[in-house]
């Protein structure tokens, strides 16, 4: 029941840990296991091969360990290559921390994101992104909902591009 409530489009958990080109699996999203340990792909994906051949075993790994190969800002960076929930999961942020009581999970409001993420810092961090800083705009200021772009259970999108042509890579 949790599975159905939270989302439907969960691509393979660690399919991209090698940093190879993204190819979201065509197969249906696996049943989601709220107790899955970070890096334990099989906890949800079962026997499905979600890592490229030769990828080191990930069971027990957290995001810091992944980052030794998948360095942030490098070609191998994970951001944008797999749904955000996997990154949260790898940091040890499980379903309940965002969705509350898993028997009756709630949709994640913007304020929930803000309880960990800091808008002001984020705006500063992306100040030099071209052609515009994606975290502040004349239209919606600095308060736009994270989920406009950064989807957690589906591929992220570039909300600005409804009208503009900003070539952002959206993690």
């Amino acid at each position: 029941m949790l599975v159905n409530a939270i989302g439907r489009a969960v691509p393979a958990l660690l399919a991209l840990l090698l940093g190879a080109a993204l190819s979201l699996p065509a197969s249906a999203a696996p049943a989601r296991n709220a107790k899955a340990a970070p890096g334990d792909c099989a906890a949800c994906h079962k026997a499905e091969k979600v890592l490229p051949a030769g990828h080191p075993a990930t069971k027990g790994m957290k995001l810091d360990a992944c980052a030794q190969c998948h360095a942030p800002k490098s070609e191998q960076a994970l951001g944008g290559k797999l749904p955000g929930m996997h990154l949260h999961q790898l940091r040890g942020i499980g379903c309940a921390q965002c969705h509350g009581d898993l028997k009756k999970p709630t949709e994640v409001a913007h304020d929930k994101c803000m309880s960990c993420h800091d808008t002001a810092k984020l705006v500063e961090k992306t100040a030099n992104v071209k052609p515009k800083n994606p975290h502040t705009s004349p239209h919606y200021g600095k308060d736009a909902d994270c989920n406009l772009c950064h989807h957690q259970h589906a591929k992220s999108e570039n909300y600005c591009n409804q009208c503009h042509k900003f070539e952002f890579k959206v993690p």
Binding site: H139, Y140, A144, D145, N147, L148, C163
Partner: peptide
Amino acid sequence: MPVPGGNSAI
């Protein structure tokens, strides 16, 4: 909509 302002914002 998920953003306020409708057309007025743009």
